[in-house]
């Protein structure tokens, strides 16, 4: 097995008798771009919520392999713990901190990588000051990478839709993840914006060595950037493979187009 960083085994999630996800096995290797597709209600976001700790899986193991090869089983850990371990996510229906500025949103993302406590904040010693300046610089750098710097001091809720989606990605990147989970990043974007997203996602992977798992309905985007694709339907994993394999898979075609 090559460099696996996330391994999901026999994973099931049951909501009061309803099998939202049923016995799924997924693994993701370092520096891959993997897409998770499937019709609405297939359980994709549920899977994301379990990986990032918002729900506790009913069954199965979710294991993260750290950069220094330490393995951690993350079932039932708090979301913030999981973020510390190097997993970060965006949300399907944008959840920015609306009354904060774009820059502050990204600065929040830096939270786990900082140390300053109450005492540091009050005394504002040299170390804390340096750290604070560092946060501003890092956050600004991330905004620039995503070409969002002109919105830096703009309140998040005042941003146009496309930049809001990008800001979610920027915020997640600020947590310094090794794996970035994007939940429908292209939803509601126009063609030009989607094109740019395509470019940005590849760039994030190539330049930052961040592995990417994304849920997406835009098949053009998925087929263009994903190296491997998992297909979920009614909570079951029905196919796995390269874009070419998935396109030709009869089970997938059936799930999408019906009989």
């Amino acid at each position: 097995m090559s460099d696996t960083i996330l391994d999901i085994r026999n994973f099931s999630m049951i909501f009061g008798g309803l099998h939202a996800v049923n016995c799924v096995n997924i693994h993701i290797d370092k520096c891959e771009i993997v897409a998770l597709i499937g019709p609405n209600g297939a359980g994709k976001t549920t899977l994301f919520n379990c990986i990032t700790g918002l729900y506790t899986p009913t069954e199965g193991d979710i294991t993260v392999y750290n950069s220094n090869k330490k393995t951690v089983r993350i079932n039932g850990l708090n979301p913030n713990k999981i973020t510390e371990l190097g997993l970060a996510r965006t949300f399907q229906n944008i959840r920015l901190f609306n009354s904060m500025t774009a820059l502050e949103n990204v600065m929040i993302g830096c939270h786990t990588r900082l140390k300053a406590g109450i005492l540091g904040a009050i005394l504002r010693d040299g170390k804390t000051r340096a750290e604070e300046q560092g946060v501003i610089d890092t956050s600004m750098g991330i905004l620039k990478k995503l070409k969002l710097e002109r919105y830096a001091n703009e309140t998040a809720s005042n941003l146009p839709y496309g930049p809001q989606r990008l800001l979610e990605i920027a915020r997640a990147m600020a947590t310094e993840p090794q794996l970035l989970l994007l939940d429908e990043p292209a939803a509601g974007m126009n063609l030009a914006e989607t094109k740019r997203l395509d470019y940005i996602i590849s760039k994030i992977r190539d330049e930052e060595q961040i592995t990417i798992l994304l849920i997406e309905h835009d098949m053009n985007l998925v087929m263009s950037i994903a190296e491997r694709i998992y297909v979920l339907d009614y909570g079951e994993l029905i196919a796995e493979g390269t874009p070419a394999e998935i396109k030709a898979n009869p089970a997938v075609i059936k799930a999408y187009l019906g009989e």
Binding site: T52, N78, N80, T83, E84, R95, F97, M100, H111, R171
Partner: peptide
């Protein structure tokens, strides 16, 4: 402040 704005997002950004 992040916690006030959106608890779920704050948690996912690593805030305890």
């Amino acid at each position: 402040e992040a916690m006030r704005e959106d608890e779920i997002a704050a948690q996912s950004m690593g805030i305890n």
